[in-house]
């Protein structure tokens, strides 16, 4: 018998006892069995996830909606939702913002929950919104420099420095971004905007 994942002979036959439909048997070569045993998640989470996503999306969405969801793209890293579905891995932290509504049913399926209630780090500067805002400002600054609009570039540089130096917790505070109201920024909400209302 061949390994499920490659051409080598399957010498390991592993029972996955956690499948809701009863135990399933995996046939693996020594190398893939090692992978299986060393990893601490469910076996091949990527493919389990892909299956879950496929099933779920078929149930809940019409073909058109599915195609539309697949075309969505993260403005930070460029990954499309279709690429995520294929590989089972996200491209960057901002994907949780960019694909929020598509990921939510998946989170319910996996965890039976959609919000965190565990440890919180002291340093809350790691929100993807903050990274996105910095990227936007840096892109604008670069553009201003190419257009030789040095005054604009200078102002943008000050804004970037303010975010980077200040303990500005964009996306973490209930009333974040108070000193960050940029009229041109498409993602800026009202001052009381919080993470929940981002989409």
């Amino acid at each position: 018998m061949k390994c499920q994942h490659c051409e080598k002979t399957a010498t390991f036959h592993i029972t996955e006892l956690t499948d809701p439909n009863g135990p399933t048997i995996l046939h693996l070569c020594e190398e893939h069995a090692r992978t299986f045993f060393n990893q601490d998640g469910p076996p091949d989470p990527a493919s389990a996830l892909t299956n879950m996503l496929a099933k779920q999306l078929k149930l809940e969405k019409a073909a058109d909606d599915l195609a539309a969801a697949d075309k969505k793209q993260c403005p930070m890293c460029g990954i499309t939702f279709a690429e995520f579905r294929k590989g089972g891995r996200l491209g960057c932290p901002y994907d949780y913002v960019a694909f929020e509504e598509d990921l939510e049913p998946l989170l319910v399926n996996i965890h039976g929950a959609t919000s965190h209630s565990g440890k919180v780090p002291k340093n809350l500067n790691g929100s993807p919104e903050r990274q996105f805002r910095l990227k936007q400002l840096k892109d604008e600054m670069r553009e201003a420099i190419t257009k030789e609009q040095y005054e604009v570039a200078g102002k943008l540089r000050d804004k970037i420095a303010a975010i980077e130096n200040g303990q500005n917790e964009i996306g973490q505070n209930e009333n974040g971004q108070s000193d960050e109201s940029n009229e041109e920024a498409p993602n800026d909400g009202p001052p009381d905007d919080d993470f929940q209302s981002f989409s």
């Binding site: 998640g41 469910p42 989470p45 990527a46 996830l49 089972g88 891995r89 996200l90 932290p93 949780y96 990921l103 998946l106 989170l107 996996i110 965890h111 929950a113 919000s115 965190h116 565990g118 440890k119 919180v120 780090p121 002291k122 340093n123 809350l124 500067n125 790691g126 929100s127 993807p128 919104e129 996306g171 973490q172 993470f195 929940q196």
Partner: peptide, 25 residues
């Protein structure tokens, strides 16, 4: 480690991970 590094984290979803099966804690 957190005292020296900035982790990807949101109050809503917790620690952000490459695979949604690990997100939160």
């Amino acid at each position: 480690l957190e005292s020296k590094l900035t982790y990807a984290f949101t109050k809503k979803l917790g620690y952000l991970t490459a695979c949604p099966t690990n997100v939160g804690t």
